[in-house]
Amino acid sequence: MQRLTALLTAALLSAGMLSAPAIAQEDASSDAAQAQAAAPATDFSDETLKQFAEASKEIASVSRDYTERLQNAEDEAAKQEVRMEANEDMVSIVEDSGLEVSTFNAIGQAIQQDPELMKRVQGMVEPQAE
């Protein structure tokens, strides 16, 4: 569960979705998962970063739906069911992008600590208007 929650946290951060991390905040174990990677690698290929960016964009979109469902859940059991379904969907998105969950999480953690890497990824997520 720690890896999956870290996955959501990384996706939300990378896609600029800091206003909607409700699912991730429900599980304090994400802090422990992030602490385990104190110095993540930052030498990811452009192809890998592009896969991350595309998966993050899709996850951010999906997470909005799950955040709304979580807020509308009637009880803790319903909330847990929404969390599990969200995690399963997000893992599928990452795997369909061609990345492993561990690689996706490593990139997510790296961009939190490296502003330049975050700019590179955001440039891959956001359409270039200029």
Rank of each mutant, 00 (worst) to 15 (best):
S102A: 03
Q128H: 13
A106E: 05
M17F: 10
Q51A: 07
R69C: 00
Q34G: 15
S56L: 04
D96L: 04
S102C: 00
F44S: 09
D114N: 10
I59E: 11
M1L: 12
A86S: 00
K79Q: 09
E126Q: 15
P115I: 02
S30F: 14
F44G: 07
A11E: 05
A24Q: 06
I107S: 00
A28Q: 07
E47C: 08
Q36I: 08
L117A: 01
G98M: 11
S61D: 12
L7F: 05
A73F: 05
A86F: 03
E130N: 14
D43C: 06
V125M: 06
A24S: 13
E88K: 11
A11F: 03
T67Y: 01
M84F: 13
N105D: 09
E54W: 10
T48Y: 09
L49A: 04
D114W: 02
A28I: 13
L70T: 08
T42P: 04
V125Y: 05
Q36G: 12
A73M: 07
D96I: 06
Q36T: 13
E95M: 10
P21K: 00
E85C: 07
R64L: 15
K57E: 10
E81I: 10
E95W: 06
S14P: 00
N72S: 07
K50I: 09
S45N: 11
S102P: 00
S63N: 14
I111Q: 07
Q51G: 03
A110R: 03
D43R: 07
V94G: 07
F44M: 09
S30A: 14
T67K: 02
A129C: 09
S29F: 10
E130R: 13
L70I: 08
A55T: 02
E85A: 11
A129S: 15
A6D: 14
Q122F: 08
I59V: 13
V101P: 07
M124V: 02
E58T: 03
V62F: 10
A78C: 04
T9L: 11
S63D: 13
R64H: 13
T42I: 15
D89W: 02
Q71Y: 06
L99M: 06
Q113L: 11
L13N: 14
K79S: 09
T42R: 14
T48E: 11
E81K: 15
F52A: 03
E68R: 06
T67L: 03
D43Y: 04
S19E: 10
S29V: 12
D31W: 15
D96W: 05
A53C: 04
D31L: 15
K119T: 11
V101W: 09
T5K: 08
E76A: 06
T5A: 14
A33N: 03
A73D: 06
F104E: 03
Y66P: 04
Q34D: 13
V121T: 09
L18G: 14
M118F: 14
Q112H: 08
